[in-house]
Design a protein around this nucleic acid. Sequence first.
DNA 1: ACCTGAACACCGTTCAAGT
DNA 2: ACCTGAACACCGTTCAAGT
Lengths: 221, 221
Amino acid sequence: MPNGPARGPRILRNQPPLNADQVVDAAVRLTHRYGLEQWTIRQLGEELECWPSVIYHHVGTRDAVVTEVVDRVVGMVRPLDESIPWRQSFETTLGDLRIVLRHHPGVARWLAVTGPVVPAALRGIDRGVRILAGAGLGDEAAIALTVLLSSAVQLIAVEENWAAGESLSDIREVLGEYRDSATYPGLAAMSSFVDKCDFDALYQYGIVRVLDGIAERMRAV
Amino acid sequence: MPNGPARGPRILRNQPPLNADQVVDAAVRLTHRYGLEQWTIRQLGEELECWPSVIYHHVGTRDAVVTEVVDRVVGMVRPLDESIPWRQSFETTLGDLRIVLRHHPGVARWLAVTGPVVPAALRGIDRGVRILAGAGLGDEAAIALTVLLSSAVQLIAVEENWAAGESLSDIREVLGEYRDSATYPGLAAMSSFVDKCDFDALYQYGIVRVLDGIAERMRAV
DNA sequence: ACCTGAACACCGTTCAAGT
DNA sequence: ACCTGAACACCGTTCAAGT
């Protein structure tokens, strides 16, 4: 008998040929289940009941698969509405962005790190810049949208990370020691805030602060 | 003769024993040179002329070494000054933060992802919360500081990433195709903004927007 | 206490060979 | 065209053995 656990797929493919779409579909499923960086090419092969090399044949490297997954996920976000006031349009779409990204852990972090460089994001960026420019920001629209979007995905990434609590030094654990500290009242306040864990409020607060800053800038320009 | 390249350190240690500090020192050097996530335990062993297992003996896992590096780097940032107006104090320290983090690539991203959970950051957090609370934000100080800090490290991480241009789909390359697009004027504006690459301006703009938002909130509370 | 050196259980990726 | 299956060159980590 062969020793050790099976390395390849347990069931040999006796099925119609795979294509790139099916590979990315499976990768989106694994991302939903485990997170974008929590699955391996070998796991994806098991999900598809194929050898890892088949994935390379249809899509390419792991990075290429990941980029396709992000593109799919970003494509799920409802686009900005140009027929309503700029602020309301952004609040709606950014709220929807959070919902979609929370269903696909790790994608927010990827966007924060890599930037929104997938095809599905480009339409939204174009519209976002035009809306901000039209609302009075003019040439500053691009930089303002960059700040707004990177703040949004960063806040979602922070929230995912706090919720997971996977890191070596978990933030709640570290701050918990100062929960009732009289010598460090600031840390005590931060500790109780982190304990409450109100992520809706964190996201809302951050987005509103940036939007306020942008609105003020509109008045000044 | 032994085949293949040497796996272990080329020169055997004939030196005084190592300690944890020296291991972290070396890791800080490698971080400065290559970035926090660009060196391996084996490379660190070569830098120290020791076997990888020695690192585990003195410090622990790679994550533990990384956390120590981040602590050291955060400790280099000039602390918030409580004797000047809150806004000036933050602008100064956040400017210094950017300089320090840019000298140690990858640390900004680690802070963005993991949160400022290293000992060296706690004093700064305590002071930051107290300053904001005293300036009129009261109970909102903790959430506001969270938003401000996460925006700052995120903007620095973005800047490092754009400068490196390491990712599969480089942002300049992707946007470059729309540089003179008439059908996507928003993307054209974004492309020319990214091309200019004025990172000082990006950081400054983002920080000032968030500070403006916080200042407005102070007036409302 | 500190270091040696091999070994383990993973990775992503490549490639000649099969059908 | 698409899939097989082994192999390569890495990782982080562990551990018995040496001094």
